[in-house]
Amino acid sequence: MRLPRFEYLGPKTLEGALDLMATHRDDAKILAGGTDLLVRMKKGLIRPKTIISLKALDELAYIKRDTRENRNNILIGGRTLIADIIASDLVQRKAPALSRACERIGAITLQHFVGTLAGNILQDNRCWHYNQSQFHRSGRGACHKDGGKICYARQDSDRCNSTCQSDGATALMALNASITLQRKGGRRRVDLADFYTNDGIAPHAIESHELLTQICIPIQGGQSAYKRLSYRSAIDYPLVCAGVLLIPSTASPTEISEARIVVGAMGRSPLYMAAASASLGGKKLDDTDAFQKAGKAAMDTAATFAVHNVGSTLEYRYAMVAEMVFQALTEAGEAARETGQKAANKGVQ
């Protein structure tokens, strides 16, 4: 398959990139690693006139801890490689869910050489009726995402039900992350949970002249975990994934004060499971029964979103929502108990 022709621009500075984005607006696309973008271009799904590459913007490749003015955050730049995140001790210790998620993105080659976390968040939603060659999509009516009026994944659907299969976004949403979007002359910060449009055609609330410059993960003193399921051990998008964060109560450290459960690959965006999360408040960190119930609740919610468009069977993916959530909660609970224990031991000494 062939890349269509385009104009390639390689700004040397962030300012320069923002300038170009302001000029070209909808005609341009940002190129980070290209592992999502170029594949879609080859299939003729998008035909940007201009490509603005982030290649030279080393200023956006960093992972650091921000402890200024009582803050306690991990900051990740808008062009940081997935491989660097996997290698980061800070992320490993303070946001293990993100480490685990990044380890499973594509394959080592993709992680090392090109793929970025910002690109991972901003990768387009997927659907096996849509992510196909031009030939495949010919000879039948175009679907909503392809500029038409049909949905092949859900009969009679008046909108697109494409699936967000981003591992990174699922983990980050569980970690309560926010992102910084910068444009010429301004910037805004959005919680990842508020970043989605609920529209499968354009799933992210971002303007064409906005650049994702930073990802911010608050360090909240809890434990996070991430579980995902695919048929192969690598080069396989998730069929279901779950990111969780458990924050123990300061008063009674064996109890959960706050839980966040996020399920990915089941809807147009990672799905924050409000009811299932809330159900864990006050529960013990090893309450298997409560974890199982939370998994089931998450399954019931996710089932209302998912369509059969990324592989396996819907029934199986539903069942696996419960399982992945349960596994992630168990792991996070165990880790939290361990850290609690260690802290207690220290206190005794």
Binding site: W128, H129, Q132, H136, R140, Y231, R232, S233, D236, G311
Partner: peptide, 14 residues
């Protein structure tokens, strides 16, 4: 129409 004609979507073992 074959929905998984590529190596990414046809699950050959690695």
């Amino acid at each position: 129409r074959c929905l998984n004609p590529t190596m990414l979507d046809y699950k050959l073992p690695l």
